[in-house]
């Protein structure tokens, strides 16, 4: 029997495109110097606040991520 698990990451959090179809090497490199912009779970654009140290990103549906 196969257990159905909802994938936790579906969308690229930088460009908002499908992240399951293949890697996004350009996005991965860019993300080293950028906060995420899209919610990886629902593809909504997030409200992102960058601070001198760290950032926070809020999806209205899935809440806050910090980095």
């Amino acid at each position: 029997m196969t257990e159905l698990v909802e994938p936790t990451t579906t969308w690229c959090d930088r460009c908002g495109e499908d992240a399951t179809a293949g890697a996004h090497p350009g996005c991965a490199t860019a993300r080293e110097l950028e906060p995420p912009r899209f919610c990886a779970r629902c593809r909504r654009r997030m409200k992102v606040q960058v601070l001198p140290v760290g950032w926070s990103a809020v999806c209205v549906e899935h809440g806050e991520t910090r980095g």
Binding site: L33, E34, V50, V53
Partner: peptide
């Protein structure tokens, strides 16, 4: 400018 910028990140201070 040390730390992050306005919408992008810098290297650690």
């Amino acid at each position: 400018i040390v730390g992050n910028y306005l919408t992008t990140l810098g290297r650690p201070a």
